[in-house]
Amino acid sequence: MAETISSFWGPVTSTKECCEINYAYSPYIAEFYNTISNIPTILLALIGLINAIRQRFEKRFSVLHLSNMILAIGSMLYHATLQHAQQQSDETPMVWEVLLYMYILYSPDWHYRSTMPIFLFVYGAVFAIAHSVFHFAISFKVHYIILCLLCTPRMYKYYIYTHDISAKRLAKLFIATLVLGSLFGVSDRVFCKEISRWPVNPQGHALWHVFMGFNSYFANTFLMFCRAQQRGWSPKVVHLIGGLPYVKIEKPKSQ
């Protein structure tokens, strides 16, 4: 929701805004709830990163959890400032993260191992430069959705070939959080005028951030399980303090 008041960051220069009153709580944070709602994503990614390092998963999973953290930090910068430069620090990592998911999903069956990471790296670099020059708007969203859809068939294949009930539950939680987060995010944008008249704003975009933080965590954990199965590491899903699921593995002594 655009506001004309002055702030520490100057006039709003981002090309999109959410249904939250700007600078309602601090002159240093444009959208307070949309900023702090990224904290769960950072904490969940940190937990995933510690688990990946502690159990010596492949480096790709450490990078994946780090990319979740970087994306959340970029989103915090964007919503705190509503500046166009920070908007790109949110949007460009979104594309990089999906490219990383594509690598993790498809690389096990890719015969020419060096070509995929090289292609995806070059693609991500070219996109970052092009996005900084041309400031994609609608085309960015279409491009991002297409990349996500390219990941879908492989995720579905992993799901149907996974027989562990706990692992399948992770995939279902991934879908559930995606659907719920999308409902809140879309409602925040589409029904903003109506929501602005409510006594309390439910902060749909902030809830989108929270749900997508869990969504990324469940996706990462499911992929870690599937990869551990491929490597013969006897994975099983256990729970941290009786709640948050994570993957525990037993590597053969030769590894």
Rank of each mutant, 00 (worst) to 15 (best):
S6V: 11
S7A: 09
T13D: 02
T15I: 06
K16N: 14
E17Y: 08
C19H: 01
E20G: 04
I21D: 14
N22Q: 15
Y23T: 11
Y23N: 15
Y25I: 08
Y25P: 04
S26H: 08
S26W: 07
E31G: 06
E31Q: 09
F32E: 10
F32W: 11
F32C: 05
I36Q: 07
N38G: 06
N38W: 01
I39K: 09
I39T: 05
P40A: 07
T41P: 00
I42S: 09
I42E: 08
L43I: 15
L44C: 07
L46N: 05
I50R: 11
N51I: 11
A52P: 02
R54Y: 11
Q55V: 02
E58F: 01
F61T: 03
S67V: 00
I70T: 10
L71C: 07
I73W: 00
I73A: 10
S75K: 02
S75V: 01
S75F: 01
S75R: 03
M76D: 07
L77I: 08
Y78P: 05
H79T: 03
H79S: 05
A80M: 13
T81R: 04
H84F: 13
S89K: 06
E91R: 15
T92I: 15
P93R: 13
E97T: 12
L99I: 09
Y101W: 14
Y101S: 10
Y103V: 09
I104D: 15
I104G: 14
Y106P: 11
D109R: 12
W110E: 15
Y112N: 13
R113H: 12
S114Q: 12
T115R: 15
P117R: 10
V122I: 15
Y123E: 07
G124R: 07
G124L: 10
A125H: 00
A125E: 01
V126A: 12
A128I: 03
F134H: 11
F136E: 00
A137P: 01
I138N: 09
I138L: 13
S139Q: 12
K141C: 00
I145M: 07
I146L: 12
C148Q: 10
C148A: 08
L150S: 09
C151V: 04
C151Q: 08
C151M: 08
T152C: 09
T152I: 11
T152Y: 04
Y159C: 06
I160A: 02
I160P: 05
Y161K: 12
T162P: 11
H163Y: 12
S166K: 15
S166H: 12
S166M: 09
K172L: 13
K172Q: 13
F174Y: 09
I175F: 12
T177K: 06
V179G: 03
G181D: 01
G181C: 04
G181L: 07
G181M: 02
G181S: 05
S182M: 05
L183C: 13
V186D: 01
S187Q: 02
R189A: 11
R189E: 04
C192S: 03
C192P: 00
S196E: 11
S196M: 03
W198K: 00
Q203P: 00
G204V: 00
A206C: 04
G213F: 01
N215C: 06
S216I: 00
Y217L: 11
F218E: 02
A219E: 10
N220W: 06
A228K: 06
S234L: 11
S234D: 14
P235F: 04
K236E: 15
V237M: 09
L240P: 07
L240R: 12
G242H: 06
G242L: 04
Y246M: 14
V247D: 10
K248H: 13
I249F: 07
E250D: 15
K253D: 09
S254N: 08
